[in-house]
């Protein structure tokens, strides 16, 4: 695998994670539990869509085949998406949505902080911008975990159920393969070890304050990074890509 191939794959992974999660969050727009929260959640979706666009644009540049952000988002098939399964799971109740955001943010922040030191200037620049957004996202998703965990009996039960269900999808966040190996060697992406440590520390601290139990690290789902997804992704893409597929070559 050349460095260019690895970098292209890496940008797709980062882009797809953000793209698919922002899509899920955008499904809440107009349906949030309180008007103020609706606005906040949409801000989160907008931050993620911005990050996705940065990565997909860069992926197109790295690949060098003139593919735009929209070509990559709208004209790839299910097996070509490289996001983790965690982000494609349906929203579930609000506790599920928040718990997913929290787990994602707790991984995403240390990852992007480390990427600020990337030997690749573009990746470093994308990370520098994203870190500000994710710092706020992690703070607010953590605050909500604490509110739910230490709120009412019902919210505690829902938050714990969400964590228990989503936990098996967190293993994928820390998987590494040849793509990472090539780029780590070149100083372009960070080692996963310290990121996992930061994730563990943050999750433990928040769950402790939330009086929630950290699920045991048992079986972990895998496959997303190789394009082997849940059945949910196909439906999401069918909806998301519908216009581009129905009217090939049209401008919007």
């Amino acid at each position: 695998m050349t460095q260019q191939e690895a970098l292209f794959a890496y940008c797709l992974r980062r882009g797809d994670d953000n793209l698919i999660l922002s899509h899920r969050l955008s499904e809440w727009c107009g349906h949030g539990p309180q008007l103020e929260e609706d606005i906040a959640l949409t801000n989160r979706a907008l931050d993620l869509i911005g990050q996705a666009r940065n990565y997909l644009q860069y992926a197109g540049t790295v690949e060098g085949k003139q593919r735009s952000e929209d070509d990559l988002a709208y004209l790839r098939a299910e097996r070509q998406f490289m996001n983790v399964k965690l982000v494609e799971m349906p929203n579930g109740d609000y506790a599920h949505t928040i718990a997913r955001c929290f787990l994602y943010d707790a991984w995403h922040l240390p990852l992007q902080q480390a990427l600020m030191n990337s030997a690749d200037e573009q990746l470093a620049a994308i990370a520098a911008k994203a870190v500000k957004e994710i710092t706020y996202q992690l703070k607010t998703s953590g605050d909500w975990m604490i509110r739910f965990g230490d709120g009412t009996e019902e919210s505690h039960r829902r938050a714990q159920a969400a964590l228990d269900e989503l936990w098996t999808y967190t293993g994928e966040l820390f998987e590494t393969d040849e793509v990472d190996a090539v780029l780590v060697k070149a100083g372009i992406v960070p080692e996963m070890g310290p990121i996992k440590a930061a994730f563990d520390a943050k999750v433990d601290a928040v769950l402790n304050e939330a009086t929630l139990k950290r699920p045991a690290d048992g079986f972990m789902m895998t496959g997303g990074r190789q394009g082997k997804h849940t059945e949910h992704l196909g439906f999401m893409l069918a909806e998301m890509q519908y216009l581009q597929r129905a009217y090939p070559g049209a401008t919007w």
Binding site: S26, C29, G30, I39, A45, L46, A52, M240, L243, Q244
Partner: peptide, 21 residues
């Protein structure tokens, strides 16, 4: 929102609907 034809339009539409809220 979930069927917006490209990423630019999707972001615009989200921001607009957010404004309505």
């Amino acid at each position: 929102i979930t069927r917006a034809p490209n990423l630019r339009r999707k972001a615009i539409l989200l921001a607009k609907i957010q404004d309505e809220a």
